[in-house]
Design a protein around this nucleic acid. Structure first.
Lengths: 203, 203
DNA sequence: CTCGGTATTGGACCGATGGACAGGGTGACA
DNA sequence: TGTCACCCTGTCCATCGGTCCAATACCGAG
């Protein structure tokens, strides 16, 4: 049950040593040769062919976490698709790395908080999420709130929505606030992302 | 930080008591009224409107896990989409429930092992298709502008993008301004629609 | 008839956003 | 060496967006 950090060796590693004092640093080739089932292996996404390394080791039963210096949802999915259980920022503080380690060793998935919503949402849309999303997203909205949400989802500004619906911009804000609260989104961008993956006939 | 099991009250609960001796059993209405941020709440998927209950509580900061007597991938996606962090069999042994609890309290996601591959695998396929097409659209952009555009297209704010790319918020604005000019869009909303639209075209 | 939900609007506040000015630093190329 | 593109940063400012505090009116359920 070794704790291994895979790196090219050129950069000095930030705080991994602080998080896991007993961890060992090895290169990609050593990782392929030495890692066995049960080992916790950390891979940085700036490595060449990190994805195939993750795939290989995960099939062997190794518990993998990917660390990225520039986390994004696309890379997160690539990591999870390759079999990684964790995806975090490479410069995460030691206590967060230990948290990731706790999760992945207990059969869990740990994703960088800023991307968690997108990862979960993307996974949800993948399989039959449409029907459920319709109920969840639209049932709780009133007629007027739906109209505002539809306009905003087309990229219109509050002023444009107000002109289109022949109401005050202030009223648009009121309805929009209710939409945000009911749909659990923070702002209009989250709303666009949530609605843009649905069919138009729903609205 | 209460440990709460939501149930209709009629059935006797299998082994939850064994797993968490200090846990309390409450009904859905009590859960909506009492649960606060930080609480670990367990919901069974045989409840009426369990999905909306999960949505409501998760937005409140409650840590939710869904227990199903007949786990399936569709329900798993529904649970995760509603904001649940855990999805397991309702008859899971106590040690497994405690494992789920460990994972979700550490910001992790725990999914029934038999469904895990489908969750991450399926999600990766869809997102992979989107990523390829974005590259074509953003061909006229520089590397940095692409990174900013990608992040913004995921709904991040300027500040969040700045933190992710480890640059100043001002620099994000500069790149973003160039992106707007090159792609002929007025604001970030138009950018999101432009990018997400092309994803759907190819899909 | 009261109570609650919906629709509408107002004002004020403050953070986020985008544009317009201004630079400095690097590396490639003629 | 000069030029150019790219990357990074700064200040100022007008506007937009989102939330808080209200208020008025309609309408159906109890």
């Amino acid at each position: 049950m070794a704790q291994l950090f895979v790196c090219q060796g050129r950069d000095e590693i930030p705080r991994w040593r602080e998080a896991f004092t007993e961890a060992r640093l090895i290169g990609p080739e050593q990782a392929r040769a030495q890692a066995v089932a049960g080992d916790r292996v950390w891979v940085t996404s700036d490595l060449e062919h990190w994805s195939s390394l993750v795939t290989t080791l995960s099939q062997r039963g190794v518990i993998l976490s990917v660390l990225s210096y520039a986390p994004n949802s696309r890379e997160a999915f690539q990591a999870l698709g390759a079999g990684a259980r964790g995806y975090a920022h490479a410069l995460s503080p030691p206590e967060l790395l230990r948290q990731v380690e706790t999760v992945v060793t207990h059969q869990g998935i740990w994703v960088w908080p800023e991307l968690l919503a997108q990862v979960v949402g993307g996974a949800f849309r993948t399989l039959g999420g449409e029907a459920v999303l319709q109920e969840e997203t639209l049932a709780c909205l009133t007629e007027r709130e739906r109209a505002v949400a539809r306009a905003v989802a087309e990229g219109l500004s509050n002023k444009a929505v107000a002109k289109q619906l022949e109401i005050t911009e202030r009223t648009v804000k009121a309805h929009l606030g209710a939409v945000f609260r009911k749909l659990g989104v923070r702002d209009r961008m989250q709303l666009i992302l949530k609605l843009s993956h649905q069919e138009q006939d729903v609205l």
